[in-house]
Design a protein around this nucleic acid. Structure first.
Lengths: 129, 129
DNA sequence: CTTGACCTTAAAGTATACTCCAATGTATAT
DNA sequence: ATATACATTGGAGTATACTTTAAGGTCAAG
């Protein structure tokens, strides 16, 4: 199928598909005589796979790695698990960072509420010194 | 003081200070005759203020807004509180997104652990279809 | 044979917050 | 006079995942 059809079937823009191909995430096989890309049904699955992994917060290089894993006979479930566990570690550290920020911002809001009439904002003063 | 001294006193690189000045976050006042920037003690506080707000996850344009608030007579604590509340809403939505991703990834890991011997990884298969 | 709907490429633009570079000017000590 | 340690500028580079642009080739229908 041509790129437009693949685009319609996956909801991914044609430009994005070309970009993914350039990055080695999707393959179009041999070009037609007219130089048009020629995708197989498999490309639909590949793009589906990419979308699912994007939703899990993986980057394109990481997703490329997953695609290699998927096509490699040697791949064990443990290898996949390892990637997922590394990923969850990253997610956890991002969450703790956000959590600590949230606490600080919540405290600042609390300070504002305590002195609602104050002409000068205690929160700003505190950030300044 | 010259930019190098300000850099030493704040721990911010000279390039970053110049960048902040260009963005209107810090002011150096009138140049010396030799065209060197001439910072006052206040610049130290301003940079301190910027750093504190960066730690709370604010962007430079947002921080610039806070600086304006700080220097404006009209600023009420409520105006500050409003910014903080908007910010916490953003933080919360980022956290829920991460939380939902974490759940999905944890489920995938669980699936890997359930079938540790499987030659083909159920998790990968599931992402593919 | 022209119109319109396809397709192609390379290259630049977007957003954010710097960081680095090159070329050059200035101040101070020896 | 020179070495060294400062300072200046404009502009490019970094990372990520696209999106947009410009200029042009291909194909089927009327």
């Amino acid at each position: 199928m041509l790129i437009g059809e693949l685009s319609d079937k996956t909801g991914l823009s044609k430009d994005t598909i070309r970009y993914y191909e350039k990055e080695g995430l999707v393959q179009s096989g041999a070009r037609k005589e007219n130089q048009y890309r020629n995708f197989s049904e498999k490309a639909i699955h590949t793009i589906h796979f990419i979308k699912n992994l994007k939703e899990l917060g993986f980057t394109l290089p990481e997703i490329k790695d997953f695609i290699h894993l998927f096509h490699n006979e040697e791949t064990s479930c443990q290898m996949v698990q390892k990637r997922l566990e590394d990923h969850i570690v990253n997610i956890n550290s991002k969450m703790s960072l956000l959590e600590s920020i949230r606490t600080k911002v919540a405290n600042a809001i609390h300070l504002c509420k305590e002195n609602p009439i104050a002409k000068s904002c205690q929160t700003l003063e505190k950030l300044w010194d």
